[in-house]
Structure formats: C-alpha cells, structure tokens
Design a binder for these strands. Structure first.
Lengths: 211, 211
DNA sequence: GTCTATATAACGATAGAC
DNA sequence: GTCTATCGTTATATAGAC
C-alpha cells in the first residue's frame, strides 16, 4: 500500500483524521449495521490503524453517534434558524420543512442509520438514548412548533399536535426505510409520494373554512 | 417439565407441535432478532429437540415466515372478506380497517417481527421476499381497494392512491415500531395517537364539498 | 531533542466450532 | 462443555513535526 517512492509509514494529519474515519464508518455502518461492522475494517478504509480511531472517538458507539450527529445537527440547526426568523404563512413554512425532510431522507444516509437504531439499539442502549434525545425529540419539537404556530394563527385546525407530528413525519421516514429495505418497489417511488403526502398533510391540517 | 406421574420422556403430539414451536419461536425471535435466535433455544422453550423443529419447518427462515404468516394471514383474510361483502360508506369501511390495523399493531407481535425484517433482511433475502409479497403488497392492495372505491363513489377526493396508502399505514406501523424501540415516550402514547391519526386521514381524503 | 500522532501488539470478553 | 478465533479496547513503542 505504500507509494513507491516514499518509505514513510504514516503522516500526522490530526485535522483530517476524524472526518476520514467518520466517512469510512458511515459507509460500513450503513452497509452492515452496527454489530457486524468491525472497527478494523473502518480503520483500513480510513487508512489508519484501529488504535487511531480511539484517539478521536471513545468507543464504537461514540463513533456511531458522532456520524449521526454530523449528518443531523447541521440540518436541524438550519431548520431551527429558519423557524426563529420566519414570519409568513404557516403552511408555507411547513411545506418548506417537509421539503428539507425529503432531501434528508433521499440524499443522506440518515434513513440507513435510523434503521440501525431500530434494529440494534436493543443491544446498545447508548445509541438509543442519543438518537431519542437528539434526533427524535428535537425533530418532533420543531414540527410541533410549526403546528402550534399555525393553530394559534388560525391557519391550521386545532388538533392533537403530538399525533399530527407523527402523521406527518412517519410516512416520510418509513418510505425511506422501506425503499432502503425493499429496493425500488414502484409503489414507493419518492417523486410521486412526497408531493402527494404534502397535499394530504395540508388537507389534514386545514382549518375549517366556515362562513 | 414432566408431570410427576408419567415416566414418558416424550409424547406424540403431532397436532400440537407446530403451534408450540411457533409460539416459542415468536417470543424468542421478537426478543433477540433473527440472527441471534438459536433454534436450540426455540427447541428448549418448546420442549422439543432441535431435530423436531426440522420435522415441521424446512429452515429457520421458513419457521420465521410461518410465524409471520400465522399472525398476518387470518387478519388479512378477515379484512378481505369484509371488503368483498361491504356495501356502506367508504369512510366507515376505512375507519373499521384502520381500527383493525391498530389492534394488530398494539396487540400482536407483528411490529416486532416487522422490525426484524427491516433490520436483518439485508442478510436474509428469503424473509424479505416473503414479507414484501405477502404482507406489504397485500396490505397496500387492500387499502388501495378501499381508496379507489371511495374515489369512484365520490366520497374521497381523487388522489395518488399509492401515496395515500403510505400516508395512512406508515404512521400506524412506525408508531408501533417506535414504541417497541424507545419505550413509552409520552408522545407515542397510542390512545391519543390513533384517534387523532384517523381524523387526520379522513380530512386528508375528504372530497371537496362544493356548491 | 522534545512532544505527540500513530502503529504495533497484547489483553480480555464473548461467541462459535467441534 | 471445552477450545479457539475474533473483535473491542488498551498499553507501549516509534516515527514525524518543530
């Protein structure tokens, strides 16, 4: 594996190591799941030794959490920044956020990681607690804010907000999980699905138009 | 485990064995997942030898499929029988079917088994194919029938039926999966959730009432 | 020459084989 | 039931940057 001209066994690249390890870890975790992923394979893919992983991450579970955090946190931050600043119709705000969720579900590996949580967190309580507190509750909270706002403004009908949050998010998540698991069943085609689900949601939330 | 008066080490109970094995298997599969379940433990819990399992089931995957089938098929049959016979408002029919889905999600181990499919079917394609063809596509098909019926009768608005099916089913399934994984987060409380989701769905499907 | 990022090698638990 | 291989984790040696 050495380049021909150099006899160097390794280089100091303190800045880049964590990102390289996380990139390698993401690919292998998403492919094989948590338990089946060997840190030695992650190390090899990242071009470091197994021990080097432990310089930057306290444990396998911490590495996994860091990977999830790296994907999720910037997106949540962006969404929350918008929520704080926004001052238009709640339906538009909800549409925008649902579009972002679609992007996350279709362009990142977060669904594959969510699958790992569902599948294996029974054996690994640390990763479950992290995902519950930093992903689920945070995501629920953000959507909940939008719905409460819309209800207060009379744009959405009063309803069980915690339940509505699930009616909105779970199809998006589960569609991604199902595609991840069953491949491209025509029923699961994301293009048609997301537009239709957004329409469905808007009608489900619409305030009664009365005279 | 033997009764005190009998010295028989075993009895011929050809009729009961499969059910006993499946009951034991259900508990252990739901608890540990597919790969981690050892047929030896299933045999012990069922009070038979490992070889006896193979008398009735061709493989571990076949046993798993039989357990899923045993839970799902009678319920599908019941629902489909109703669909064939029913002749009232589509909204009532959909309500009834959603109630049945809620019962299945809250009173059976099917969500735990669904979790296994999501989690492990990557490694075990046989169980994925079975679940896709006999559970997902069948369930999708049934709901799809109800929606098409309601649209034809003018009771539901015309919409992307395959997408609406997902907007309806996935929250029910995912709520059960999330409770299974994260325990009793108050947000996931099924009592409040199912009623609210049903209301949400009815509004999402409602035909435009126009003059 | 000193400091430290990194590799090598060893440890201990656990699971799978025979 | 015992033995063995594997893998997460940790201790120690060494190489690279300044």
């Amino acid at each position: 594996m050495n380049t021909s001209s150099s006899e160097q066994k390794w280089q100091r690249r303190k800045e880049d190591r964590p990102a390289e390890i996380m990139t390698a870890g993401l690919r292998i975790f998403a492919d094989r799941g948590f338990a089946a992923t060997r840190l030695e394979d992650v190390a090899e893919a990242a071009g470091v030794s197994k021990a080097t992983i432990y310089l930057y991450f306290a444990s396998k579970a911490e590495l996994f959490a860091a990977i999830v955090r790296d994907i999720a946190v910037p997106r949540f931050d962006e969404i929350e920044k918008l929520l704080d600043a926004y001052d238009g119709p709640s339906a538009d705000l909800l549409s925008f956020v649902m579009d972002r969720l679609r992007d996350i579900a279709t362009t990142t590996q977060l669904p594959a990681l969510a699958k790992i949580i569902l599948a294996e967190s029974h054996n690994f309580p640390e990763i479950r607690a992290f995902y519950r507190d930093h992903i689920i509750l945070r995501g629920f909270g953000n959507l909940s804010r939008i719905l409460h706002r819309g209800i207060e403004h009379g744009e959405f009908r009063p309803c069980n907000v915690e339940a509505a949050v699930q009616s909105i998010i779970f199809p998006i998540l589960m569609n991604a999980l199902a595609r991840n698991t069953f491949g491209e069943l025509p029923q699961l085609d994301p293009d048609g699905f997301f537009a239709a689900h957004a329409e469905f949601v808007m009608r489900g939330l619409a305030a009664n138009r009365e005279a």
